[in-house]
């Protein structure tokens, strides 16, 4: 293949990666932005989403699209409820103290990871693509499902943006993010808001998992790498900035995809980490971050 088409192929692979990464990072950013806690277990909610997708689709025989649609409906709810329960049982008792919640979410990480290992075993679990159509792009063929992943992520990101900017619920989240004490003084029940946001963040990551698992397979150790990349994205984009998170996910996802195709995935990770260092030196609050007063 010539360089031009090869670059186009790598960019499309990068876009698929960026689409899923933006969903995972958005969940992490939402939790950090509103609750001001670092959720180290976020990657495990993604992994749980992938494993449950395999589990749900293995129940449905026949057309794989039915199992996939069922997973798309059910998995974010199950993972979201798991996160809500974790918050209710653990985090709220720590009064969302930033240091204590890091330790607590490391604990949640291990609980979810070991639960997945003990319940579903150590093997990678394949999930069939809901439709197997190959689009002919003149120079090469490309999976229609991968275009579906990109399209679905864009739709979900637009929906989240609409909710955040145009609804009362979004207004409450933004007010809580800006000043939780004053928000309380205006009747906003912040512990309930935190509970919902923690669940929502995990559910968004789970949607990313449902979308990616027919391409990538589910495995109990698959949460680590997306967590690292999501942290990189959130730091580059600016902690708590949804706009910055999406921009940085496209930057990191695309470069990760392109460099992985042309060179190797390891070089892609090294460069992404170096980019974090450069951004932190030039703009310590990230590309779109603001200093909290």
């Amino acid at each position: 293949m010539e360089l031009g088409p090869y670059l186009l192929f790598a960019s499309l692979e990068g876009l698929v990666h960026a689409a899923v990464l933006s969903l995972i990072a958005l969940g992490l950013s939402l939790v950090f932005g509103v609750m001001r806690i670092v959720n180290v277990a976020h990657g495990e909610f993604f992994m749980l989403g992938a494993i449950i997708t395999w589990w749900v689709s293995s129940f449905v025989s026949g057309n794989p699209a039915i199992g996939f649609l069922l997973a798309l409906l059910v998995v974010p709810i199950i993972v979201g409820m798991t996160a809500v329960l974790s918050d209710w049982l653990i985090l709220r008792h720590l009064k969302y103290d930033p240091e204590a919640t890091i330790i607590a979410t490391i604990g949640i990480l291990y609980i979810i990871q070991q639960f997945a290992l003990m319940t579903f075993g150590p093997d990678a679990k394949p999930v069939e693509q809901p439709f197997n159509i190959r689009l002919d792009l003149y120079w090469f063929g490309f999976s229609a499902y991968k275009f579906f992943v990109i399209f679905s992520a864009i739709i979900l990101l637009l929906a989240i943006w609409l909710v955040m900017s145009k609804t009362k619920f979004g207004l409450i989240l933004r007010a809580t993010q800006l000043d939780s004490e004053t928000a309380q003084a205006f009747g906003i029940p912040i512990s309930r808001v935190y509970n919902i946001v923690f669940g929502l963040g995990a559910a968004i990551a789970a949607v990313g998992a449902v979308l990616i698992v027919p391409i990538q397979q589910a495995h109990y150790l698959m949460g680590g790498e997306p967590l690292l990349l999501a942290f990189i994205v959130v730091i580059i984009g600016g902690l708590g900035s949804l706009k910055g998170t999406v921009a940085a996910a496209i930057l990191i996802g695309m470069s990760d995809g392109i460099i992985s195709v042309f060179f190797s995935p390891n070089i892609a990770k090294i460069l992404a980490t170096l980019l974090v260092v450069v951004v932190l030196i030039i703009k310590p609050n990230g590309l779109f971050g603001t200093t909290k007063t």
């Binding site: 009362k168 207004l171 409450i172 933004r174 007010a175 800006l178 000043d179 004490e181 004053t182 928000a183 003084a185 205006f186 009747g187 906003i188 603001t290 007063t293």
Partner: peptide, 26 residues
């Protein structure tokens, strides 16, 4: 009603959105 020291507005929200938060309360 409470007007905190230093105003404590939701500084990245518009004037209207700040008022909306007040209106939501009751």
């Amino acid at each position: 009603g409470y007007v905190p020291q230093g105003r404590r507005l939701f500084s990245e929200l518009t004037v209207e959105e700040n008022l909306e938060i007040g209106l939501l309360t009751r």
